[in-house]
Structures are given as structure tokens and as C-alpha cells.
């Protein structure tokens, strides 16, 4: 009798290969998070929202690039583009942060992570890095498209491209600032609940509630109050920092007077505080 077609149970095989350290786990978790941000490796349903947002942002960038190249008009600068797209970014953050954190809380997966060499700091770090990258890509890629549109139609050759790039670089930096601040706030809110809808609502609420405060402060009679009004909301806070760094009080941007450094300090402190709180929260979770 022939043995073909017979499936042999080869039994249990011990694993003799390499075992990588915590660094590799961190990297794997980072890539896992980044893929999840855009719905890769998830169901089709999970892809709809991130790609809808990304699609709109790319479309706007393409239009801006087209207008720039055909009519030679600058509608938004790179920095203004970020400000204009703020609400889309907030919705993206409101969906993504719960996807990264609340999901693991809801399904109770955390004990599985923390019974492996991974530590709380690795987990928080990888998730934060993934989210910052995702938000930065969401803003940075459209900015790159705008840059390409401008660079290919420049009339001054290489120096024109270089000048354009010098505009793009701070734009990218500004996007990174957005990504850092929004990710830290979003993740902190998302880490508090296992219910994704609550987390998303909470994140949007943080931004919604703080916006009117800025509005009220900015119509007070005191100029100092007006200049400090932006501190009350994350969105205007970033706008203020951007304003201070770019050094100009243009008509579109936030009036911050001479309080630029205050804005920068608050932004740094806010990011650091959110991350520390996240870490403290996961220290506790990791100990179960």
C-alpha cells in the first residue's frame, strides 16, 4: 500500500530558532499599531473611516497643488493647511486612539501582553509612536503632494525647489507637533475606557468643550486675556506655538502677542503630562 495521501502527525516540534528581545517586540507592536491605524489586517469595515478622512485630505491637497501650479496662487500655506484640516484630524484621532487602546482593554488582551517580556512602558511607547506616525502621515503626505505640485511648476529652477522645500520642512515640523499633542491627549482619554464609542466621544468632547472657552476669552477687553486665550484649547495652543515659531502675526493666525514661549511650554508640558499619566495607568494595569 502506498503512503501517498496519508497525513503524518509529526508531533510537537520544539522551537530551536532565535528569540529576539524586547526591542523586536516593541517594533512589531509599533508596526501592528500603524497598520491598524489604516485598517490593514482588519476587516473592510475598519478601513472605511481612516481612508475616508485620508481621501478627503489628499483630495484637498491635490486641489491646492493644482491651483498652485495652474494659477500660481497660494490658498493655504503648509502650516495653514494643518489648521484648516484640524477637525478632520480630530475625528481621525477620535477613531484611532480607541482602536489602539480601548480595543485591548475591552477584549481583555492586556494580560496576554504583559505576561510576555513586554513592559508597560514598551506598550505605551509603541502605541504612542504608532499613533504619532499615523497622524503625521495623514498630514505630511498631503503636504508632500502640495510641495510636489509647487516644485514641478517652479519657474526658478533648483533654487525655487529648494525655497519651496524650506517652506515644507517647518510645515512637516508643525504637523509633527499636531501629531504629538493630539496623540497624547487622544490616547490618554482612550486608555480610561474599554468602550470605543465612549472614548471617541470623550476625545471629541475634549476639543469641543475647550473651543468655546477660547472664544469667550478672546473677546474679553483685556489684550493679555486675548493673547492667552489660545492656551485653553489644544487646537489654538498648537496654532499659537506655530505662530510663535514662524515669528509672524499674520491676519489668519492666532494673536498671541509676546506670549509665544508660554504656548510652547504649555504644549511640551501637556504632552509630557499625558504620557506620564498614560504610563502610570498602564503600570497599574500591567500589575493586574
Amino acid at each position: 500500500m502506498s503512503d501517498t495521501g496519508v497525513i503524518h502527525d509529526i508531533g510537537y516540534q520544539r522551537y530551536e530558532g532565535v528569540r529576539l528581545g524586547r526591542g523586536a517586540s516593541f517594533l512589531a507592536l509599533y508596526i501592528h499599531g500603524l497598520r491598524a491605524a489604516f485598517g490593514f489586517g482588519r476587516s473592510a469595515k475598519a478601513k472605511i473611516f481612516p481612508w475616508l478622512v485620508a481621501g478627503i485630505m489628499l483630495l484637498v491637497a491635490v486641489i491646492l497643488a493644482a491651483v498652485r501650479s495652474q494659477l500660481d496662487q497660494v490658498i493655504f500655506t503648509y502650516v495653514e493647511y494643518d489648521d484648516q484640516m484640524s477637525w478632520l484630524v480630530i475625528f481621525f484621532v477620535a477613531i484611532l486612539a480607541p482602536e489602539l487602546l480601548s480595543r485591548d482593554i475591552r477584549s481583555g488582551t492586556l494580560p496576554l501582553y504583559f505576561s510576555r517580556p513586554l513592559r508597560a512602558a514598551d506598550y505605551v511607547g509603541a502605541k504612542f509612536a504608532a499613533m504619532v506616525t499615523a497622524v503625521w502621515l495623514l498630514l505630511g503626505v498631503p503636504q508632500l503632494i502640495m510641495f510636489l505640485g509647487a516644485a514641478f511648476t517652479t519657474k526658478t529652477g533648483a533654487s525655487g525647489v529648494w525655497n519651496e522645500f524650506l517652506d515644507l520642512a517647518p510645515g512637516w515640523g508643525y504637523s509633527l507637533l499636531w501629531a504629538l499633542l493630539f496623540s497624547s491627549i487622544g490616547l490618554l482619554v482612550a486608555s480610561l475606557t474599554g468602550k470605543r464609542a465612549f472614548a471617541a466621544g470623550g476625545i471629541v468632547a475634549v476639543f469641543l468643550i475647550t473651543t468655546p472657552v477660547v472664544g469667550v476669552l478672546s473677546i474679553l477687553t483685556s489684550t493679555t486675556a486675548n493673547h492667552l486665550a489660545g492656551l485653553a484649547s489644544p487646537m489654538t495652543l498648537i496654532a499659537g506655538v506655530g505662530n510663535w515659531i514662524s515669528g509672524g502675526d499674520s491676519e489668519m493666525s492666532m494673536p498671541i502677542g509676546r506670549f509665544g514661549p508660554v504656548y510652547a511650554i504649555e504644549a511640551v508640558c501637556l504632552i509630557a503630562a499625558c504620557l506620564l499619566l498614560l504610563l502610570a495607568r498602564y503600570r497599574k494595569v500591567a500589575a493586574l
Binding site: Y15, G17, V18, R19, L20, G21, R22, A24, S25, A28, L29, H32, G41, L112, Y113, R116, P117, L118
Partner: peptide, 16 residues
């Protein structure tokens, strides 16, 4: 997918 992911969390290379 899930077990693969946790395998990587334990330090296994991707294919392994």
C-alpha cells in the same frame, strides 16, 4: 493572526 501577533510579542521573528 492573533496568535501570530502574540508570537511576535514573545520575540519570535515574523516567519517563525
Amino acid at each position: 493572526e492573533f496568535v501570530t501577533h502574540l508570537g511576535r510579542m514573545s520575540g519570535l521573528p515574523r516567519t517563525a
